[in-house]
Nucleic acid binder design. Structure first.
Lengths: 196, 196
DNA sequence: CCTACCGATCGGTAGG
DNA sequence: CCTACCGATCGGTAGG
């Protein structure tokens, strides 16, 4: 009984990590203090350490939870029997979803990963590199298929990932546009460009 | 005589600001200490204050020097009698140039401006908003001209700016591609997309 | 979960 | 440009 209630409700630790993500998005990791975080949660700074081991552990949990999500989703798209265009559309939608629905997590992972220390730093970079390689393979297959034009796929990869990233900061303030509408706009922009 | 030599050579202050930009790009503004910076310059931390007033003054000089450059270049493009497509191409080239040739300045301005305090913070944001508005007007004119397709120009604006920004981090390490080649690739990607 | 506290380090100053 | 130093604040611990 108690367990089922606890699994439905957020644990204190979940709340701490969630508030930390918001705070780190706003001020940056180094400028965010444990006293700031404690204030948001409504306890004293020393009490945080009953739920978490260190400031860096929080950063690690945020980075890896999202990195793992991307890895999982990529694995599904990778083995699907779809055209390269369809795979890229799904990846664009995935990135739009994460950067809007989980804006604070995405912001922390993208902007603050360098403050991880070893061995977490290397693990994280390995996950990221593996993800980017799989993305690159999809783009290259599309070129061979003649679904995409000849292009430097590395430039395209980084531009695509980067072009969706600003949603982190924008969508937090301006929410009048639906996620579906944003997805459509970005898919058209990246697949067809802006000219007629 | 002495003056002309000093105006040709970099002043100590120029060196300090330059090293600061590199260091802040690597570690972030808050994590960069005056002792780090002094070490790079080859003096003691206290000696920095003979050339600069505060840590934040350095941040301000970097942000505003680059913001002013963008403002100046935009003013030239704005009044030119060119097609919307040509104006956008020139803006893409401008952003590619800044993000490669002045990668550390661009990195600091884009990622660390929020650590400015008032009144510099508001001044900076005003410059940025003015720049973005002029960029937006060019996109909207292109839509009215039928040079560009109907689209959400705000999404396009931020995606374009964001998509060029990753060059800051990439070009520092991988320089085998010429700037002209990068410009061409990005212009094609943003104007025509990736499909055939 | 709190009070009380610690060693380390920060940006910056005084004085030469 | 350096030595010597300062008040503030940091992440984190001891003990209850």
């Amino acid at each position: 009984m108690l367990e089922s209630i606890q699994s439905i409700n957020k644990s204190r630790k979940d709340i701490i990590v969630e508030e930390a993500a918001t705070l780190i998005m706003e001020k940056g990791y180094v400028a965010t203090t444990m006293r700031d975080l404690a204030g948001r949660v409504g306890i004293e700074a020393a009490s945080l350490y009953n739920h978490i081991k260190s400031k860096e552990q929080i950063l690690g949990e945020i980075c890896f939870s999202l990195a793992n999500k991307f890895t999982t989703e990529m694995a599904i798209i990778e083995v699907s029997n779809e055209t390269s265009i369809e795979k890229i559309k799904k990846l664009i939608k995935l990135h739009v979803n994460v950067n809007t629905e989980s804006a604070s997590l995405a912001s922390v992972m993208n902007d603050e990963w360098r403050h991880l220390s070893e061995p977490e730093l290397s693990s994280f970079l390995a996950l990221r590199e593996s993800y980017e390689n799989k993305f690159l393979i999809i783009l290259n297959e599309g070129i061979i298929n003649h679904e995409f034009r000849a292009m430097d796929s590395k430039i395209t990869l980084y531009s695509m990932l980067s072009s969706i990233r600003w949603l982190q900061h924008w969508y937090t303030n301006e929410r009048e546009m639906s996620i579906e509408n944003i997805q459509e706009n970005l898919i058209k922009l990246l697949l067809q460009g802006i000219t007629i």
